[in-house]
Design a protein around this nucleic acid. Structure first.
Lengths: 208, 208
DNA sequence: AATAAATCCATACCGGGTTCAGAAATGTAC
DNA sequence: GTACATTTCTGAACCCGGTATGGATTTATT
């Protein structure tokens, strides 16, 4: 009859316990200084069990941090340009931003990530894959020549990435979430203005 | 009297032997499937010795593949904008391109790299560092607000990266080097046009 | 030939990650 | 509640990349 499974509840519980233990230890002593054996022991499971729940040490931190730009492009409304769709999405994200998700957990994660070169490398790797998917989506959206889509995807991904970085950098500097969210709103407009009209186009105080 | 060092010659020779052996094995059987022990053995040295010459397995392939955009910006002529300096540099690179360096060795390296997720991740990591340096250089060059410099650095790095990728992709598809170099020249102009005037500015056939 | 310095190597070790055989827990049937 | 199948967990051994160490070999100088 399979009635909501007690097994599955325990599994989820164990999974959360492992992830939380790991994040706490990483924050206390640094990602690289904590071994997965310690995490497993502190969480009360065996190393093998830990790796049954998480495929790698990195995934203990990076579980579900994606930002699927390709899906946004693919799912845009008829007649809307890819750039407009992305602009609308990130404008909306910035507006929601402040109160929506739990800032504390997120900020903890970001703190752990930015403190570890290994995790940063992994994040970057994920972004590369995302960029390739976006390039494919753009090529679908505007079937012109290849290199243009790749160049656009690269620049868009770079801009979005930088928005995230600047946002979290502000938060880590102690800027209160509401103000950081407001600045993010401004940065989104700046970023898409740069994307649309170029680095030497507008009023963003650049000489010659 | 130190007469040109026989020691140093032997060292260089050993170093080359290790690197060439590694590249050959990686190309034959794949980077991940070859252990450094095998490389060391095939090159006739001990594992420890290999790591005395190269700091990591990756560096056997990625030795000296950087592309220092920050230095180009810092070393530009008086009155020249950062973007112009970079544009001139890559235009020149594309012109020289074809005959200058040994395409075969380079192409072999690129083939090995693109076939290995681990190496790709490492390349990407290096680019991230390069991007941060470029952001610092841009902030020095045009002391405006912070986020703009970071956004510009991100977009420029993304464009340059994509130029390389498209170039090597063409080569790997069998396009003859001279033609690939010519296409690279065109792509350089396209990329900097996009950078200067934006993704929806010019004549690069984008509809919406 | 003697000596100082550089180079090399065997071995043992560490941490991340996997494999495997079985122990423990859970679900099901009687 | 007992018996059995299935899932989950575990300890131990192992692989690979990388480091530490102490000694052996080669090279350069006198």
């Amino acid at each position: 009859m399979m009635m909501a499974g007690l097994r599955e509840r325990k599994k989820e519980q164990t999974r959360r316990r492992i992830a939380e233990t790991a994040l706490r230890l990483f924050d206390e002593r640094g990602y690289d200084a904590v071994t997965v054996n310690e995490v497993a022991e502190a969480a009360g499971v065996a190393k093998v069990t830990l790796f049954a729940y998480f495929p790698s040490k990195e995934s203990l931190v990076l579980d579900g941090i994606k930002d699927d730009t390709a899906a946004i492009v693919d799912g845009r409304e008829e007649g809307q340009s890819p750039l407009d769709a992305l602009h609308a999405h990130y404008r909306e994200t910035a507006r929601r931003g402040s109160g929506a998700i739990d800032m504390d957990g997120l900020l903890l994660r970001v703190r752990v990530i930015t403190a570890s070169p290994a995790l940063l490398a992994s994040v970057h790797q994920a972004r590369m894959e995302q960029r390739h998917e976006l390039a494919a989506a753009l090529a679908r959206a505007l079937p012109g020549r290849g290199p243009a889509a790749q160049l656009m995807a690269a620049q868009i991904t770079a801009a979005v990435t930088t928005l995230q970085e600047v946002f979290f950098w502000r938060l880590s500097q102690g800027v209160p979430p509401e103000e950081a969210a407001r600045s993010l709103g401004e940065d989104v407009e700046l970023a898409f203005d740069l994307l649309r009209h170029g680095l030497e186009g507008g009023n963003h105080e650049k000489g010659h």
